[in-house]
Design a binder for these strands. Structure first.
Lengths: 232, 232
DNA sequence: AGTTATTGTCTCAATTTGTGACAATAATAA
DNA sequence: TTATTATTGTCACAAATTGAGACAATAACT
């Protein structure tokens, strides 16, 4: 990771949302030997579009191409400039800080959120060279995060809520086939409140964006629900 | 404007909205001897918050402090890297390009929109060292803009529309006292469509955010409207 | 065969929004 | 001084949307 490859002072961070067990989750990395938790992020190559850099980072962390991605804010306060934190991380992984001193500079962070299907078999989580792990955490039960990453997550969540109606958020968090109840759970997790079943069903069906499929015997002791997919 | 003062590769652009003659306007600068039009922008000092840099730029261009400001997108494609354009601008103003070669680098642009009261007596528009003019243009009748600035304006407008309900946009574009009709014209200019008078009035009053004042004789040949201000 | 939990659909009430009507009134014209 | 004109504030009713519950249907379990 040579200095000359990357634009200095510019970083990105990704809040990668998944949905499992009726909970919203995000990917968090844990740095070697430090107890520090952080969002997955990275730097922008000099010959690379910003958006492509983020896609590259996502691919490296999750193994997925073609992830749904939305830029939501660029953080540029001086308060996020804490060179000693990055120094600690580098040293804890046995790196020579002198060689990587450009990483101790001030960075602004362009932040994105991504939505992925937790159940997707192609997902292979992979920590980077500085990290022990890259794993799912319940949004409601995050560990303390480094720098302003907690604030970044908050803003991601806020934007996700604001976009919920306008941007078909549900699509990207669910598998190709799902029940109306699955979709409702996604909405409830994002909004943080219970919704009324009948009203929800009427509203979603009214949008005309769902394709109804054959019922599938649910394995549960009650009437089997329809399965749906999103129309192209 | 020395290189060492500023973060390299990082710029900001501002879409500064005003409202006059029932039209949405924005501030556009015209560079010396080039026929090139652009959004007002600037660079971030190494010891300065990103948001403060933008406020500083706004103050320099308009003379105003405390402007309503909203960040909306960061543009980072390689297609916006056209060093010859900046070279032309510098040379046309008689600058030594060698001294300012850092300005010919690739930049990402963090973009903001600002809302100001066009009638505010404190507004003093001031071009920068490279420009002939800094002036209002009707959003619907912009000259050709350099680089991706047209696209930036489009995205600003789109965000402004999306925020119209949620963020009291009207407040910042009008003088302290205004009529219901004034406010309606603002909404119509932003949305690009006529609204129904009675429905609009009922909705706005229903929000409970307006303070009603004494009527003012309007000078027009009809019943005088109430004046309103926004509650603190 | 009966029980249980959940689903799909329907109905009616409550609320919000669309649409026009109408009296009030400030300036202007007669 | 009185009528005319344009626009305002408010109301009333219709149309549409949303809230809330009722109820029959049904897959699996007892």
């Amino acid at each position: 990771m040579k200095e000359k490859e990357y634009l200095p002072h510019i970083a990105f961070d990704s809040v990668i949302f998944g949905f499992s067990e009726n909970k919203l989750k995000i990917l968090i990395m844990k740095y070697h030997n430090t107890g520090l938790f952080a969002l997955p992020g990275g730097f922008v190559r000099r010959d690379e579009n910003l958006n492509d850099a983020v896609r590259r980072g996502l691919k490296e962390r999750t193994g997925l191409d073609n992830i749904y991605l939305e830029q939501f804010y660029t953080f540029g306060d001086l308060t996020r400039f804490k060179p000693e934190v990055m120094k600690t991380i580098l040293e804890a992984s046995g790196y020579d800080v002198n060689e990587y001193d450009w990483m101790l500079n001030r960075f602004i962070s362009i932040s994105y959120y991504a939505l992925i299907n937790y159940k997707n078999k192609d997902v292979v989580l992979k920590p980077d060279a500085l990290s022990d792990s890259c794993d799912w955490y319940d949004v409601q039960e995050l560990p303390a995060l480094m720098l302003d990453h907690k604030q970044i997550v908050e803003k991601a969540l806020q934007t996700l809520r604001d976009n919920l109606e306008r941007k078909l958020v549900g699509v990207n968090l669910l598998p190709p086939l799902f029940t109306m109840n699955d979709l409702q759970k996604v909405y409830e997790a994002i909004l943080g409140e219970k919704l009324r079943r009948t009203t929800f069903q009427r509203k979603i069906l009214g949008l005309g964006i769902l394709q109804r499929h054959e019922k599938q015997y649910s394995g549960k002791a009650h009437k089997a629900p329809f399965l749906y997919s999103f129309k192209a």
